[in-house]
Amino acid sequence: MQNPLPDSRGEVVMQHLRTGLSLKYEALDIAAASNLSVFFQPGLRLVFALNGTTRIRIGQQSLVFSSHGAQKAALLPVTENALGYKRFEVQQDKRELVVFMTPKWLRESLSEDDLPHLEASLEGHLQPCYFTLTPLIYKLLLRITDDRYRQLSPLQQESLCLTLIHESLQLIRPRQRRGGHERLLQLAGRIDALLQADTQLSIKDIAAHCNSNPATVQRVFRQRHGISLGEFRRQQQLDMGYNALLSGATVSQAAEVAGYRHLQSFSDAFRHHFGCLPRDIKASCTRN
């Protein structure tokens, strides 16, 4: 995405993870103060001020997010179309992450029990619900804003974002008695967080960390991501092999990195996952 500010340097990256779910990351050096008109569509926004200050004005409502104050993050509800502007002050290394969730995505992704609880935590249109950053949320933000995030598979990118959303919503939901569905959502978020911290954990280890059992872990993971945990691990291994090829490794070395003993098995799995052979990636890197 092109940098919309004329008197600034840096980048604005927009990523669409699935229909109705996207994120935007800004990393800018701003040389002159300016206002940028913004059209706000209905939905929810998770705003994280990673460094510097952001000011938003919509009608009579002013919102301030600052990495130097207590209001570092907030959930911002927009229930109707609104036109406003974003104020950019002179500052170095301004960094901000915004996660966008449309009403349709929320209806499809959150249960009927969760939506009323979430709405009860909000004060209305354009009324932010601020929260503090936990160590896990801070770690997730570091991973999502790292350049290597863009090299992850779409499934891994989405998994990190879903975990960030889940952990953030836990901080703003009212303290009510938790039903079975919410416990399953918490378990799904915990599984994702454990896998992001250590991709080599066995199913038994994950179940032990979550005070659950392997069968439930497998079922919850498949419901959340549409594939089994074993298939997820195979995709991760192939992604590692793909990145090894991009870094200059031979096909044999990439197969070893991906955990394959036989080149033919690696080539078959690679073609099934990426639609091309490892040697095609290697040849492309050589030409470039």
Rank of each mutant, 00 (worst) to 15 (best):
E182L: 12
Q218S: 03
L160F: 08
L162T: 09
R222C: 01
G226N: 01
S202E: 02
Q235D: 00
Q151S: 13
L194W: 14
Q176K: 14
R234C: 04
F221S: 00
Q186D: 15
V217M: 02
R222Q: 06
S168M: 05
I165C: 09
R150D: 07
I191E: 12
R219W: 02
Q237K: 12
L155F: 03
D192F: 05
F221E: 02
I191S: 12
E182P: 06
G180N: 04
A193D: 09
I165Y: 04
L187P: 09
R222H: 04
R234H: 08
E182H: 14
E231M: 03
F221D: 05
Q218R: 03
L201S: 02
C210Q: 08
S153M: 12
S159K: 00
D239W: 04
S153Q: 12
Q186V: 14
R177S: 15
L238V: 05
L171I: 13
P174E: 07
Q156H: 09
G180T: 04
L169Y: 13
P174Q: 10
T216C: 07
I172L: 12
L152F: 07
G189M: 03
I172Q: 12
S153G: 13
H209D: 08
D205Y: 00
H225T: 06
H181Q: 11
I172V: 15
A208D: 05
Q157G: 11
L160Y: 10
G241T: 07
Q200A: 08
V220A: 04
L185Q: 15
R224C: 01
L152W: 05
L162K: 14
P214T: 07
H166A: 03
L195H: 05
N213F: 02
E158V: 00
E158G: 03
S153V: 11
L152T: 02
I172N: 13
S153F: 06
T163P: 00
S168F: 00
D147T: 12
Q151P: 02
Q196Y: 10
G226F: 00
R175K: 15
D205V: 01
N211M: 04
I172A: 11
G189H: 06
I165E: 07
L184F: 09
L229T: 03
D205C: 02
L155T: 03
G230H: 10
L160K: 04
H209T: 06
D198H: 10
G179W: 10
S212A: 01
L160R: 10
Y149I: 01
Q200I: 01
R190L: 14
C161I: 15
R148C: 11
L201V: 06
C161R: 04
E167N: 00
